[in-house]
């Protein structure tokens, strides 16, 4: 890559490495240790080596949480990517100025926390503001009603959360896409839709898979929307992690669940990297 290798560069890396080790690697090591600790009533935890926190994963309680979390995240990820792909594609073919304006807006939405997204959607779907009122006003329903909390409102929130990230992954790839390829397909007589499906889509498969996995991991990590927009039976793994850590004061069990969530996420990210490399290898 770069021919320059001089030992004098080392001091540069000293501070960042120290900071990341102390404040990121250590916390993880401690969390891993704590996941084997024993919980102390009314306090935090005491050192021990127990597998009991992990054994609780085998209960139906935990199985249901896991199924809910994965089902919600997978559904949201599919909806997001199905919408974000054509969106990014069309966006990348607009004028540069229009692209910038829309990207600024997408970035602004991306920066919003789950608190604000949850609050905004619960307002939009509430009885006194938003669609409940609107449907009543145009005469669609007799009396205004709330559309939240519920499964649909939770999914809307998750899609809203994940959409900007999908654009972030897909947009660079589609804007680098060679415009002449689909044109060539069209000149050889393929319809626009067919050119899109048989030429554009296969080239984009890698970033689509990447976006799917990223959005899945992101929405799997959602900890607040299920509380604000869903009902208790829609609570996902991160909600239970927060609940155990803060309200049940069971940090060891929370840590064990966090390690599990971490492993699932890492496995998925690893999978996306492998898929990406294979594709790259195949195409060159």
């Amino acid at each position: 890559m770069n021919p320059r290798r001089e030992p004098a560069l080392w001091p540069l890396a000293l501070f960042p490495c120290a900071a990341l080790t102390v404040f990121f690697v250590f916390p993880f090591a401690i969390m891993l240790a704590v996941s084997f600790h024993r919980r102390v009533e009314g306090g935090f935890f005491e050192p021990a080596f127990e597998l009991s926190n992990y054994l609780r994963f085998l209960t139906p309680f935990f199985g249901k949480i896991l199924a809910t979390s994965i089902g919600l995240a997978a559904t949201a990820a599919i909806i997001v990517v199905v919408a974000a792909f054509p969106f990014s594609y069309i966006l990348s073919r607009m004028r540069r100025r229009a692209q910038s304006v829309i990207l600024v807006f997408i970035l602004s939405v991306l920066s919003l926390s789950e608190v604000i997204i949850g609050f905004a959607w619960s307002t939009l779907l509430s009885r006194t503001a938003g669609v409940g009122n609107l449907f009543h006003w145009i005469g669609l329903v007799e009396t205004p009603r709330a559309y939240t909390p519920g499964l649909v409102s939770l999914l809307l929130g998750l899609v809203y959360l994940g959409f900007p990230y999908a654009v972030l992954v897909i947009y660079p790839a589609v804007s680098r896409l060679d415009r002449e390829l689909p044109e060539a397909a069209r000149m050889s007589g393929a319809s626009p839709l067919r050119a899109f499906a048989s030429v554009t889509l296969p080239i984009m498969r890698r970033s689509i898979t990447g976006a799917l996995i990223l959005v899945f991991v992101f929405t799997l990590g959602a900890y607040l929307l299920p509380q604000v927009l869903g009902r208790p039976r829609h609570w996902t793994l991160p909600v239970h992690i927060t609940d155990q850590a803060i309200f049940q004061s069971n940090i060891p069990f929370a840590a064990a669940m966090a390690m599990f969530l971490l492993l699932v996420s890492l496995a998925l990210v690893g999978l996306s990297l492998i898929v990406g490399n294979e594709r790259q290898g195949a195409s060159t």
Binding site: L20, F24, F28, V34, V217, G221
Partner: peptide, 22 residues
């Protein structure tokens, strides 16, 4: 290593920080 804290599920990083500061 630099981007990992941001890429992990936020609740995992948050819990890591919690046990560290305790």
């Amino acid at each position: 290593l630099g981007i990992a804290p941001f890429m992990l599920p936020p609740v995992v990083s948050a819990l890591g920080f919690l046990v560290f500061w305790i």
